[in-house]
């Protein structure tokens, strides 16, 4: 698999490490236990196009949001993940 890092260009997937679904947003403390349980433990586990977090640790150290099809492994978009998991409430 090759991931086109928006900063570095196409690279071997060995340079990257995987975290998982990029959609969930870390709940703020005020949102409480249920929101955090959902964030930490539950997954949509998409069969199809999925947005996911990859870390280019073997390259520029950028966290990336990669749109990839889990059925075919085809990657349709890669962008910086900056702020992807930031809480939408609370201090910004």
């Amino acid at each position: 698999m090759r991931i086109a890092c928006p900063y570095c260009g196409p690279r071997e997937n060995g340079e990257f490490s995987y975290l998982g679904d990029a959609t969930p947003v870390r709940p703020s403390l005020e949102q409480g236990v249920d929101a955090m349980l959902d964030y930490v433990f539950l997954r949509d586990n998409v069969a199809g196009e999925m947005q996911e977090l990859w870390y280019h640790g073997g390259g520029c150290r950028a966290w990336l949001k990669v749109t990839r099809n889990t059925l075919t492994h085809e990657i349709s978009a890669v962008e910086a993940a900056r702020g992807a998991g930031a809480a939408k409430v609370g201090k910004r």
């Binding site: 690279r11 073997g58 390259g59």
Partner: peptide, 24 residues
Amino acid sequence: CSLDLDASVFPVGTAAATSVDHTA
């Protein structure tokens, strides 16, 4: 090194952050 270092894609002055033997 897994990069394409051909002159046509990696001209003089090109830099890369990459990995060798699993090391950055």
